[in-house]
């Protein structure tokens, strides 16, 4: 997982004297640019090209459709629930796992990782087996007039599942690396647990947290497979943006389909830019922590 790979700091300058001959270097760079062009840019470009095929007017008109607007609203709602839940969970998990040792820790981490490797279709299927009319809780939910599957809660649950590891897996390695010395110092100086967390831990992991949130959000808004299984595909009601893309595509409304797709592609681009910015700031912050923070932080912390 790109996230799980962790630590993407800004690349250091290449070491001198240790490189390939110039022609080889140029060849490799050219090859990379070709890969980036063919594999990465071309699909992206085709989305926008198809979306604008009918001209800018038709493109913009796609967003005035009430169903498209409903899909955008639903996607935002789902992300607005799934992301905070995952932030809360990620912070708890990282605190418990990184700052303490207990038996079964590795197992817990593997379980948190599991949604990375589970096919989105299987995750959707799982929720149908649990909350569907024939599922384990199906009769109970029906008796209490609650609907999970084919309604917003099912979509939210499936989204939480697929985005489950993102925040936690960004935070755990970093917080493990940082150890507990700073927190312990704060505690001995009289800070409460909550203060310690807010004033010491959170600032130290804020970039990783933000990074996790960005990735989590991108996936939450873009998930197709799992959501497709648990959504009833009701236009204007349970269709998220990726599902709306499919619906429009199947209605021969290609301009509108690619228009909604282009919105998602723009989200991806914004995500990439935000990520790059966060990485740079995080790199700068990491350099700072080792020098200044150690000296200044304790003084600040004495105040309360």
């Amino acid at each position: 997982m790109a996230g799980a790979g962790g630590g993407h700091r800004a690349a250091p300058r290449p070491r001198s004297g240790m490189s390939e001959p110039a022609p080889v270097r140029r060849l490799l760079i050219a090859a990379t640019l070709v890969v980036a062009g063919c594999v990465l840019v071309l699909p992206l470009a085709s989305v926008f090209a198809e979306a604008l095929r009918g001209g800018l007017g038709a493109y913009l008109a796609s967003f005035r459709d009430p169903e498209a607007l409903a899909a955008i609203r639903l996607t935002l709602l789902v992300a607005a629930i799934a992301v905070p839940v995952n932030v809360l969970f990620g912070l708890s998990a990282a605190w418990a796992i990184a700052k303490f040792s207990f038996p079964g820790k590795r197992l817990l981490i593997t379980l948190i990782d599991l949604p990375y490797a589970v096919s989105p279709v299987v995750s959707g299927l799982v929720y149908i087996m649990i909350y569907g009319a024939n599922g384990v809780f199906g009769p109970w939910l029906a008796a209490h007039d609650l609907q999970v599957i084919f309604a917003v809660p099912g979509i939210v649950l499936a989204t939480i599942f697929v985005t489950f590891p993102f925040v936690a897996r960004e935070l755990i390695p970093l917080m493990e690396e940082q150890g507990t010395e700073q927190e312990q110092a704060a505690m001995t100086l009289g800070a409460s647990g909550w203060q310690t967390f807010r004033r010491v831990t959170l600032p130290n992991v804020r970039w990783a947290l933000l990074y996790g949130v960005i990735l989590c959000n991108a996936r939450a808004m873009g998930e197709f497979g799992a959501v497709s299984v648990v959504s009833g595909h009701i236009r204007g009601k349970t269709a998220t943006m990726p599902l709306q893309v499919e619906i429009l595509y199947n209605e021969y409304n290609h301009v509108a389909a690619f228009a909604v797709a282009s919105l998602l592609a723009m989200l991806a681009l914004v995500t990439l830019v935000a990520k790059a910015v966060v990485e740079r700031r995080a790199g700068a912050a990491a350099a700072q922590i080792t020098t200044t923070e150690v000296e200044t932080e304790p003084q600040r912390r004495e105040a309360p």
Partner: peptide, 22 residues
């Protein structure tokens, strides 16, 4: 290029699907 590497990850899969098919 470095930022673009993450594109497949950030791009919703359905969008990649129809883009690649197109």
């Amino acid at each position: 290029v470095d930022a673009l590497v993450d594109l497949p990850f950030a791009l919703p899969t359905a969008v990649s699907g129809i883009a690649l098919t197109a």
